[in-house]
């Protein structure tokens, strides 16, 4: 118990002066942590096999099936628990890929400038201007269903987000004194980028990451809802929501409501986290 309270006092100190934004960060981190734990320990938490029929079809929530059963008698709660694995895997892989490509390109483009920067910016801006979900739909449709393909199609959509943010930050950093100084003493470009510029954009990456993940969650769920992400019987929130849609208006609310709430909660968690962090960081900077 003591270690618990010391952790909390640590958090309290970190958030002191953050005001209401502190609560956003707390709510966001708790939600995200909860879903993470759910995904990691899915086999301990889920009471049933998520892909097997375990009871009567379309059974409303009761003590045995706390979130009810779906149209073929699968336990909704177990599918929710395992579904967190699907969405988190896709989102983590895709954001990881977007970062690995978008951040270095943004660093180089912003630092080097010139014709390379102009071409890269034009390409990235064009992709950025195109409706993200529609681009993801087409790529996913061409690649076919599957976790990796979904992750790849999301990654393409979000590369420009990282590129543009990082490039903008590098442009303003480049004019700062310590970078000028490093250049004046003849430091190599590569060294300046990795030693001086990159550490200064890390906080920004954390903020973009949280806000971008919130967006990616909604896009992943959208793709699944449109039937372009995973195939049956894989548990997936967006996909399950689509499968429940047919019965929803006749009063069978549970196969739709619970996956929907999970999608919203997870997006909300990352959204609050990003917003809170961003406000606190920029307040400190004043």
């Amino acid at each position: 118990m003591r270690s618990f309270s010391s952790v909390f006092s640590g958090i309290e100190r970190a958030l002191s002066g953050a005001g209401l934004d502190g609560y956003l960060v707390i709510f966001g981190s708790i939600t995200v942590m909860a879903v993470l734990i759910m995904a990691i320990f899915a086999n301990y938490i889920a009471p049933y096999d998520p892909v097997q029929s375990v009871g009567p079809a379309i059974h409303p929530p009761c003590t045995k099936y706390i979130m009810g059963t779906d149209s073929i008698g699968r336990d909704v709660f177990s599918r929710i628990v395992y579904g967190s694995r699907t969405i988190l895997t896709v989102v983590v892989m895709s954001t990881g890929l977007s970062m690995v490509i978008g951040i270095p390109l943004g660093l180089i483009s912003g630092y080097m400038g010139g014709i390379l920067d102009r071409i890269l910016s034009l390409i990235m801006d064009s992709i950025y201007a195109f409706p993200g979900l529609i681009l993801a739909i087409v790529i996913a449709a061409m690649l076919g269903p599957g976790i990796y393909n979904t992750a790849l199609s999301l990654a393409v959509v979000y590369i420009p987000t990282y590129f543009r943010m990082i490039r903008g930050e590098v442009l303003s950093l480049r004019e700062r004194l310590f970078i000028e100084a490093a250049r004046a003493i003849g430091a190599k470009s590569r060294r300046i980028i990795t030693k001086y510029i990159f550490p200064n954009v890390i906080y920004l990456i954390a903020v973009i990451f949280s806000l971008n993940v919130a967006d990616a969650i909604l896009t992943e769920a959208g793709l699944s809802f449109l039937g372009l992400s995973v195939t049956a019987p894989t548990p997936d929130w967006g996909f399950d929501l689509k499968n429940g849609q047919r019965y929803f208006l006749s009063g069978i609310w549970w196969p739709v409501t619970f996956p929907g709430i999970m999608i919203i909660l997870l997006a909300l968690g990352f959204g609050f986290l990003g917003e809170g962090l961003n406000t606190i960081v920029s307040k400190r900077g004043e």
Binding site: L24, L218, G238, F248, G260
Partner: peptide, 21 residues
């Protein structure tokens, strides 16, 4: 600010179905 994050997180199909209901 909370409003803006909450409505943006409302997953469109789910929110639409709730309104339909």
């Amino acid at each position: 600010r909370v409003y803006s994050i909450v409505v943006y997180s409302l997953f469109i199909p789910w929110f639409g179905m709730v309104l339909q209901l």
